[in-house]
């Protein structure tokens, strides 16, 4: 009898551990398996050039997803990131035109400033004016798009200065793309911010229970407002890099990127309800989505089918997470 009981006990424990393991590492395992399978079929997938391209793509998408992680941890959402990216891309390109004769830093700062302004607008709306995040950022998405089109009447901006183009297309030492370096630095800073500073702790607390956070003396409005500012600035930076990379300002830059960013965050195990999540999970989410599109491209799967695959992947990831967390 005694023996039987302990046997049952360890079986139940193992089942629970297995569930926890899947919840925590499911996406990572899926990523590894996917990389192995694709590279077996198409060895070119793991070639240096392709990996570099994937990482470069990931570093642009990743900026949005990292900002989105902070927003989602507070229980919010930022639908404006794609539009902010487009807007910042256009405005920085405008100042980066050869004819403007401005140093690249001016163009970058103008772009980032657009993100700062729209992000602050979002933050004030959501935190202080009590507009639900979904609605507030939906509104600013439209506003940002309008600003983007108004700048040049929707015409593209060609002929950007060489120094500006370096930000998107440059290689350090001729091998390492600048966008990857920028992303790596931002990611490291965000890791420290989220896990090693009290600001990060407060982000988790506000998302987990805003009332308890308030009673603990935390200025919850300030915390909520700042995550939108962070998200806006990072999205803007992604826009600047994109303009520099494609060597022109295009109005439809960033379109639909908000859904990808949200997908990356939830694949990484962050709860949209707030308070629960992890930044390294988002990194896995970013890589999973980028590898998926690159892999499917190589396997010759058409773009229209790819959307369907991505849709199922997102749903499956969240399903695994919620099935194993109860």
């Amino acid at each position: 009898m005694k023996k039987e009981m302990t046997g049952e006990k360890s079986a139940a424990m193992k089942a629970q551990q297995r569930k926890n393991f899947i919840a925590k590492y499911g996406s990572l395992i899926a990523l590894v398996i996917m990389v192995i399978i694709i590279s077996l079929v198409k060895p070119r997938f793991v070639s240096f050039i392709n990996l570099r391209n994937m990482f470069r793509l990931a570093s642009i998408n990743g900026l949005l997803a990292v900002g989105m992680t902070f927003v989602c941890l507070t229980g919010g959402i930022d639908l404006s990131v794609g539009a902010v990216m487009g807007c910042a891309g256009m405005y920085s390109a405008y100042f980066a035109q050869e004819s403007m004769n401005q140093p690249a830093i001016v163009a970058v700062l103008v772009g980032v400033a657009m993100g700062l302004v729209i992000g602050t607008f979002n933050g004030v709306c959501v935190a202080y004016l009590k507009v639900p995040a979904f609605v507030g950022t939906l509104g600013s998405m439209s506003i940002a798009k309008s600003l983007t089109y108004l700048l040049t009447d929707a015409k593209p901006i060609p002929k950007l200065s060489e120094s500006f183009k370096y930000i998107g297309g440059g290689m350090i030492g001729g091998v390492l793309p600048v966008p990857i370096i920028i992303f790596a630095v931002i990611l490291a800073v965000c890791f420290l911010l989220l896990y090693k500073t009290r600001y990060g702790r407060y982000v988790f607390a506000v998302g987990g229970n805003a009332n308890a956070a308030r009673v603990s003396g935390i200025n919850i409005k300030k915390i909520i407002a700042t995550v939108y500012i962070l998200s806006g600035v990072l999205a803007a930076l992604a826009g600047v890099i994109t303009s520099a990379r494609v060597t022109s300002g295009v109005t439809n830059t960033g379109e639909g990127y908000e859904t990808d960013a949200i997908a990356m965050v939830v694949i990484g195990g962050t709860s949209l309800a707030g308070g629960k999540g992890r930044l390294w999970g988002t990194v896995v989410g970013i890589m999973l989505m980028v590898c998926l599109s690159s892999g499917l491209d190589m396997l010759g799967v058409g773009a229209y089918y790819q959307m369907m695959v991505k849709g199922f992947v997102v749903i499956m990831a969240v399903m695994l997470d919620s099935l194993s967390s109860d």
Partner: peptide
């Protein structure tokens, strides 16, 4: 549960929440 604790947060992090400064 409503105002005292951040339920999904760890015991340790709940304990230090007001003392982070």
């Amino acid at each position: 549960k409503g105002e005292g604790l951040v339920l999904p947060m760890s015991i340790a992090h709940n304990t230090t929440l007001p003392s982070m400064k």
